[in-house]
Amino acid sequence: MKTLILTNRVPFPPNSGYPIVVYNTIKGLLKLGVDITLFSINPRKYSVDVDDIYDSVFDSIKFHSFNLDTDVNVWGALLNVFSNQSYNVSRYFDEDAGRLLEDILKETEFDIIQFEGLFVVPYLDIVKANSNAKVIYRAHNIEYDVWERLALRERFTPRRTYLEFLARRLKHYETEQINRFDQVFAISEPDRQSILRLGCETAMEVFPVALDFEKYITDPAKTSFPTLFHLGAMDWLPNKEGLEWFLDEIWPDIEKLNSELRFYIAGKNMPREFFEYDSENVVVEGEVFDAVEFINSKSIMIVPLLSGSGMRVKIIEGMAMSKCIIATSMAAEGIKCQHGKDILIANTADEFYRSILQCITNPKKWLEIGRNARKTVERDHDINVISERMLKVYQKLISA
């Protein structure tokens, strides 16, 4: 079976949410004998030097990429206001990239073509004009929902108005495109419900984040206690917003609990303001070389997300590493977890305070939650089980 996967960034190395999801999808399908070609937009913001990729998964696929500057600029944003396109999406389309894709489609007859996320959907017309393959749209999140929720929390009126404008454009585009596919994959049940509300009449399945658990080996001897930590890309606005809220509203009271308590913050594209935060007990590490090793070395994971959609890959990874995770309901959305059993849900400053206090005064509690978390993700996020399900959908589409 020949499959073409389109991505809006190069998923090597798999060091953040989107690349991890795509990478594990490719890895799982390769194990099942699927022949995979990958076409990736390589945005300047997330630029990857393809010559520096050393990975057995990469060596097992046919790979094509196109370098593209997708950065936001004032002039482009202003001109877009007078068009009928979504600025978030249109930045990822380039005619030269389209011609490269067209050449790929002419060289190989594919059975399945999978669009990983909304930002590669502008290439759908080229695919349909040059291939008879079944086309699948995988929604990594509900894009318009992310911007709607950011707008709701924005106090500066002009910025809130513009965020609302972007959200409306995205919603219109998602609604317009969703029924042009043969199959839709949602990443969680809440996202599936949101897609249905968009008017989706296409067949839909839920495929959550998949993990290869051979990579997630815990070593308790290397775990420091008491320690709190947050891990997430800071160029994603919901991560930055949530962390700012935690540091402003919650951390000042938390650090009074124990003079030895440290809060470690890691993630790429860390804003200067976090490095300058006035607290000796906040340790900002920026981008870490090995996320799994970093997670293993700390004890309690903090995820104070206030907006966003989809499924938080870093929570799944933290659960795989048997961590006790304290997160908002928003952050845990879509994950089949239970408060007090395999995660602690906190939506207010007081709830975060009480949960953290409970964990640092009762070490057995956070250890028990961590063990249960590992069992939960093994049940719901195993790469082999999810890949086999996905292949069955492919086979059903082809035989229809």
Rank of each mutant, 00 (worst) to 15 (best):
G267M: 03
R262P: 00
D235T: 10
T223P: 02
E273R: 15
L243C: 05
E260K: 13
M270Q: 08
G242D: 02
A266N: 05
D253G: 00
P252S: 12
A233H: 09
D248M: 10
P238S: 08
P226S: 08
T223G: 04
P271K: 11
F274L: 06
L261E: 04
K256E: 10
I250W: 09
N239V: 02
L261W: 10
L261F: 08
W245H: 10
L228M: 14
L228A: 13
S259F: 09
L231C: 03
E260S: 14
S259T: 12
K268P: 02
K268A: 06
L243F: 10
D235Y: 13
N258I: 08
K240N: 13
N239T: 01
E273P: 01
F246Q: 00
F246D: 03
M270A: 09
E244V: 13
P271M: 09
E249N: 07
N269Y: 13
R262Q: 13
E273T: 12
G267T: 06
E255S: 02
Y264S: 01
L228H: 15
R272F: 06
K268T: 08
P238H: 07
K240R: 15
I250M: 11
E249S: 14
E273Y: 14
I265H: 03
Y264V: 03
E249V: 04
L237S: 00
N258T: 09
G232N: 09
G232T: 04
K256C: 01
P238T: 01
R272C: 00
A233L: 12
H230V: 04
F274T: 06
N269P: 00
R272W: 05
D248C: 01
I250E: 08
D253L: 12
N258M: 10
G232E: 06
T223I: 11
N269C: 09
F225H: 08
N258Y: 12
R262T: 03
F246N: 03
I265Y: 04
L228N: 08
